[in-house]
Each structure stands twice: as structure tokens, then as C-alpha cells.
Design a protein around this nucleic acid. Structure first.
Length: 283
DNA sequence: ATATGGCCCTGGTTGC
DNA sequence: TGCAACCAGGGCCATA
């Protein structure tokens, strides 16, 4: 499942390939609307626009769009985008840059033909992904609801979890608190911080929270360096797999010995999510 | 306000 | 071997 490191990897890859390009034609599958913005409105908004940049916020990929169908491009409002195309990959979403003649994968829901001849494709078998178009002349620029785990300060981080009764694992998954952490990195960061996933957020000591914040930052940065975790079918913009799954300490390792103490990793369910931890290393 | 649980979806795995 | 039931899970919504 794409989380912050996977989304960051994809956004960087897509940015390198389509930055400065222009959307010529847009096709959406006729399947049930899996979108936040109706397909017809998205197509109308996207066609003719220049892609200024592509970046990540939370688990969202944001394409900053400038210029309009009738001509004026990067000139008059350099840096200022007139619209945004926001992609959330959900569980199984992929955003790929391909040649137009590349075979169209099953469950392809969007194809953006670019002036360079390439295509930007959105593929999503399970359809948990979401596509949104924003006209910035009428609405505010998109921003993730919670704090970015790579930017959040110690004080801010502590405040997010203060006074909350829910399990720390559930809190880490709440995108309104932190945006970008999913099941893999919640488990991995709790392991590295030595904290049991069922501990109440509000009962964690200040020092534990700071350990967790640092562990989370390290895990996420390390995962980004390795191109993310390919556990199910995640691939980057080129279709290449990541390597961080090889470094997982607990995620999907139930029954296997802990890399630190050899105790067998356990699997429980917290907040409806499979949760993995070492009963000895985590307290 | 905060927290919980059901729901959406399909592909892979499990069970008979 | 073959088919059906089951499960995974991010975010959204209704409910307590």
C-alpha cells in the first residue's frame, strides 16, 4: 500500500518525467465514478494545461497546473498554478508514465496524453484511489489535513497525541493528526521506538514520544532512499519495485524471529488493522 | 469533540 | 483439482 515513502518516490519520478509537459487529451474509464470530481469536469479542466510541477503532500500526489487551453503558459504567473490535479492512490493505485503504445493494464481509469508523446496513467484495481481537480481561482490550494511526519517539531508532535485515549498505533494512522503514515510505517516506527502499538497515546511519556518522532523520521527517510516498500503491488512511476520491504523488522513478519532479540514477532489487530510487534523489544 | 465500526472493492489465499 | 468463502486495508460516513 502506498504510504509517504512510496508516494514521495512516485511523485519525484512523475515530476522528473512530466514537469514542463502539457496535457493534450484526457480519457477516463466509464466505470463507476471513483473520483472526487466528476470525470467530465476533470477532463474539461485538465485538457490543454501545462504541468508545472508534481509533488507530494501527505499521501496525496499533487500536479500543479498552469496555463489554460488557449495558450498562455508558464509566462504571466510564473510559479503560480491555476489549477491542481490531486491523486490519492488508496490501496492499490499506480501512477505511471508510459509511452502511448504501452499495453493498457487492467483497471486503468485515467489516461492523460501529453504533448511530449508520453502518457500519464492512473491504474487502480481496488478503486480505493481518488482523483480530484481543483480550480485555484475558485478554491484554496490543496493541503494535507495533518502535520507532515518529516517536518513536525517535537512540541507539535507531543501536542498531537496529548490527552488522547486511542491506541498510539491508531493515532499514527489518523491522517488528521499526521498525514502520510500508513500500516507499514506505523508498525516499523513503533518497533524502532520500542513502544507497544496498543499503548494509549495520552499515556506515553514525553521522552517516548520524542523517540517515536525520531524513529518515524528515520524509518521514512530510509524507506524513501530505498524507493519504498513493495509488499503487494506497489511500483514507482516507471513500474520499478522498491527495496525497503527487505528491511522491515516487524511488518508481515509474524512468527519469524525478531532481528534484534530472536523473540517471535506477533500479529494482533488494532483499529481494525493487522499490527505486528516484538513482545520483548516493545514495551 | 473523540472514538469506533461498517462499508467500499478486487485479487490472492485458504478451505472444503 | 476446482470453486467458493474469506481477508486485506485507507478513508469516509454514520453512530455512540
Amino acid at each position: 500500500m502506498p504510504e509517504l515513502p512510496e508516494v514521495e518516490t512516485i511523485a519525484r519520478g512523475v515530476n522528473e518525467r512530466v514537469r514542463g509537459d502539457r496535457i493534450v487529451e484526457v480519457w477516463f474509464s466509464r466505470h463507476r465514478e471513483p473520483f472526487k470530481t466528476p470525470a467530465t469536469r476533470q477532463a474539461r479542466g485538465l485538457e490543454g494545461r501545462a504541468i508545472l510541477a508534481v509533488h507530494r503532500t501527505g499521501k496525496h500526489i499533487v500536479c500543479e497546473l498552469g496555463g489554460s487551453a488557449d495558450g498562455s503558459l508558464l509566462d504571466e504567473s510564473a510559479g503560480k498554478s491555476a489549477a491542481q490535479w490531486i491523486v490519492h492512490l488508496g490501496m492499490t493505485g499506480r501512477l505511471l508514465v508510459t509511452t502511448p503504445d504501452a499495453p493498457v493494464a487492467a483497471h486503468t481509469h485515467a489516461r492523460l496524453s501529453l504533448m511530449s508523446g508520453r502518457e500519464l496513467r492512473f491504474v487502480d484495481p481496488r478503486r480505493f484511489g481518488r482523483l480530484e481537480y481543483r480550480d485555484l481561482s475558485r478554491g484554496a490550494s490543496f493541503r494535507a489535513a495533518g502535520a507532515d511526519p518529516l517536518e513536525v517539531t517535537a512540541a507539535e508532535f507531543a501536542r498531537l497525541f496529548h490527552g488522547r485515549k486511542l491506541a498510539i498505533k491508531a493515532a499514527l494512522l489518523n491522517q488528521k493528526l499526521l498525514s502520510g503514515v500508513g500500516n507499514i510505517y506505523a508498525d516499523e516506527s513503533l518497533f524502532r521506538a520500542g513502544i507497544r502499538p496498543r499503548r494509549q497515546s495520552g499515556r506515553l511519556a514525553r521522552t517516548e514520544l520524542e523517540t517515536l518522532r525520531l524513529a518515524l523520521g528515520e524509518v521514512l527517510k530510509h524507506a524513501i532512499r530505498l524507493g519504498g516498500s513493495s509488499v503487494s503491488d506497489y511500483v514507482d512511476a516507471d513500474g520499478a519495485r522498491g527495496f525497503f520491504q527487505l528491511e522491515h523488522c516487524v511488518y508481515l513478519r509474524m512468527g519469524l524471529p525478531c532481528r534484534i532479540c530472536q523473540t517471535l514477532i506477533r500479529r494482533i489487530v488494532v483499529a481494525g488493522r493487522g499490527t505486528h510487534y516484538c513482545p520483548r523489544c516493545q514495551r
